[in-house]
Computed example of a mutant assay.
Amino acid sequence: MFEPIAIDDPDDPRLAAYRFVRERDLVGRQGRFIVEGEVTLRLLFSFSARFAAESVLLAPERWAGLSDLFAQRAGRPPVYLAGRDVMSAVAGFPIHRGVLAVGLRGAEPAPAALIPPAPAPALVVGLVGLTNHDNVGGLFRNAAAFGADAVWLDAETCDPLYRKAIRVSAGAALTMPFARAASGSALLDLAERHALTPLALTPGGDETLDALEPPSRALLLLGTEGPGLPDAVMARARCLRIAMAVGFDSLNVATAGAIALHHLAGRRLAG
């Protein structure tokens, strides 16, 4: 029978990977990432092809409700039980849910490996220069909700496995296939090679989204709020805007992305 390990010392070296995760998350964790909450922990265990749990840290009262994750499981990670005061001292912020885990990233896939080959339908979200973790998490949630095949990110877009991005994504950052390319231009090169129509969402677009007949294979490009997509990227894409009330021309990028994805995925959702 699998037994968790009780720890009552916040300086216990077995908890080193959890130490001050709020600060360390910002600079990367040597192939590790932090998961918090029961929903995301269960997703981490369910999608083990790319990600794995290195260890789990629980408040003692959470063990009974989560012990099923470790029953009859080969290669089970260690589970540490610590009071919330110990967990909070280790993590560097108050732990309310009583559930943390250290995940391992696994190998980074090639972007092209994540989408069906032409001529099969495909819908990809391309993020260019997005450095806000809330927006990236929200867009991953939208991509999952509307059935996108993958998310491609340029080198400047922040890490979707940042603790807050995972939480805002409702765990979709762990389930939505994603990969990186060097730049927005590299994303467009991928689109060209794999017969994806590049669609750039911008308030200055020549066409309105609602008038677009969704292409069978599309790459929806989204840029950071304020500056938006680079001119060089928009010059190689079909530029679309969302029709709005007179005097207003912008939305939060995650909201705009949700509207665009709903339009582009309409047929596959109806089917």
Results as ranks from 00 to 15, higher is better:
1 M>Y: 09
8 D>A: 15
9 D>I: 02
9 D>L: 00
13 P>D: 08
15 L>R: 11
18 Y>Q: 05
19 R>E: 08
22 R>V: 14
25 D>T: 13
27 V>D: 01
28 G>Q: 00
32 R>N: 11
33 F>G: 02
40 T>E: 15
40 T>Y: 04
40 T>F: 04
42 R>L: 04
44 L>I: 09
44 L>H: 01
48 S>N: 11
49 A>G: 10
51 F>M: 10
56 V>G: 06
61 E>Q: 15
62 R>S: 14
64 A>S: 15
65 G>M: 12
67 S>W: 06
67 S>K: 15
69 L>S: 05
71 A>T: 13
73 R>V: 14
74 A>P: 05
78 P>R: 06
78 P>N: 09
79 V>D: 11
80 Y>V: 10
81 L>R: 02
81 L>Q: 08
81 L>G: 03
82 A>G: 03
82 A>M: 10
85 D>Y: 10
86 V>W: 10
86 V>T: 15
87 M>D: 14
93 F>A: 10
94 P>C: 00
94 P>S: 11
95 I>Q: 15
95 I>M: 14
98 G>W: 08
99 V>I: 14
100 L>V: 10
101 A>K: 01
101 A>S: 02
102 V>G: 04
102 V>W: 06
110 A>D: 11
118 A>V: 12
119 P>T: 04
119 P>L: 11
122 A>G: 15
125 V>D: 02
126 G>F: 04
126 G>P: 02
128 V>H: 00
129 G>D: 07
144 A>E: 00
147 G>F: 08
149 D>P: 12
149 D>V: 05
150 A>P: 05
151 V>K: 01
152 W>L: 03
153 L>W: 08
154 D>Q: 07
155 A>R: 14
157 T>C: 04
158 C>T: 14
159 D>V: 01
161 L>P: 04
164 K>I: 05
166 I>L: 11
171 G>S: 02
178 F>A: 03
179 A>V: 02
179 A>R: 06
180 R>M: 01
182 A>Y: 07
183 S>C: 05
184 G>D: 07
185 S>K: 12
189 D>T: 05
193 R>E: 09
194 H>W: 11
196 L>W: 00
197 T>V: 14
198 P>H: 06
203 P>K: 03
203 P>G: 09
206 D>Q: 12
206 D>K: 10
206 D>L: 05
207 E>G: 06
208 T>N: 12
208 T>Q: 11
209 L>P: 07
209 L>V: 01
211 A>G: 14
213 E>L: 12
220 L>M: 08
222 L>A: 09
223 G>E: 05
227 P>Q: 07
228 G>W: 04
230 P>D: 04
231 D>T: 07
231 D>C: 06
232 A>D: 05
234 M>N: 02
236 R>W: 07
237 A>M: 07
239 C>Y: 00
241 R>G: 07
243 A>G: 12
247 G>T: 10
247 G>C: 02
248 F>Y: 11
249 D>K: 07
250 S>Y: 03
261 L>K: 04
263 H>R: 06
264 L>P: 05
265 A>F: 12
265 A>C: 12
266 G>F: 12
267 R>W: 13
268 R>N: 12
269 L>W: 02
270 A>K: 11
271 G>N: 13
